Amino acid sequence: MKKRVISGCVLALLALALIWLDEPLPWLTAGVIFWGVMALREFNQVVGLTKAKPFAVIGTVGTVLFIISPHFDNGLEPLLAAFVAGSLLYLLKPGDRSQAFIRWAWTLAGVIYIGWLLSFIVALRGLDGGREWVFFALGVTAASDTFAYFIGRVFGKHKMAPSISPNKSWEGAVGGAVCAVIMALILKAVFDLPASYLELGLLGLAASAVGQAGDLVESLFKRNMAIKDSGNSIPGHGGFMDRMDSVVFAAVLVYYYVIIFIQ
């Protein structure tokens, strides 16, 4: 528990610095690239042990390109087309082609799950008032995850999805959702976000719901791969994949909320 708290505080301070600073380099983008490359490395190692070994170089290049794509106007569609076509052509290289397509499929899955979803954090930061909206997405998710974990440990009796994640409970989920709403209201007051308290309270509730669903998605992935954690790079928290599951789903939700209802 001590390691979990200490590493969580260090991660939070680092995230705050990367989100706040924007010059002379887009530091958040650089941090997300590092996060994505490390998460993809864990993904490739896990899949390679149980299924088929993804193409590491292609996957890394694709992940980085997806993460930086929000910096370029209308860059996603040509990027996706070029990546899919280029990676398929790569299968024609000399060598053992017996598992070529299954390896390609897992490579594409890793790039989409990690690279594309992480790119929404960068895209959110690039919107008007994006710094504050990223703080909102991460703050609400952190509150939801933290209190769902502790409330679930103390009061959890009714299992949410025992076949996927035996330790998650409805009591923890509700506690995390309530704390996410409280955090959303606090962040509204701190940053004076351009939406009502009711709207942001509901957005915080929705972000908690999709974040916890995203957590279950990664739990299902790990269960399919017969592992407990994606890695051990972050003391008390597992690997980089273990810390992106809920955040990216919440970031996608907040991004589309902002561009549809705010801008």
Rank of each mutant, 00 (worst) to 15 (best):
G31C: 13
A148V: 00
I112Y: 02
W104K: 04
N44K: 02
F83P: 05
F101K: 10
A148Q: 00
I151D: 03
I33D: 04
A148D: 02
F72Q: 05
W133K: 03
I33Q: 09
M38G: 03
G75E: 12
G95W: 10
L127M: 10
I151F: 05
A142S: 08
A105K: 00
A143P: 07
G62S: 12
G110R: 04
L79K: 03
A123V: 07
F135D: 00
G31M: 06
V47C: 12
V46R: 12
H71Y: 10
R131G: 12
G59Y: 06
T63F: 08
P94C: 06
A142T: 13
F101H: 10
A142P: 02
V140H: 10
G36F: 00
A100P: 12
T60C: 09
V47F: 14
F150T: 14
F66Q: 03
F120E: 14
F120P: 11
S87R: 02
D128Q: 14
A85G: 06
W116P: 05
Q99R: 10
A85M: 15
L65T: 00
P54T: 00
L40R: 02
V37H: 01
G31Q: 07
G48C: 09
L138G: 10
L108P: 02
S144H: 10
L89D: 05
G48L: 14
D73P: 00
T146N: 02
L76W: 14
L65I: 02
F43Q: 13
A52F: 01
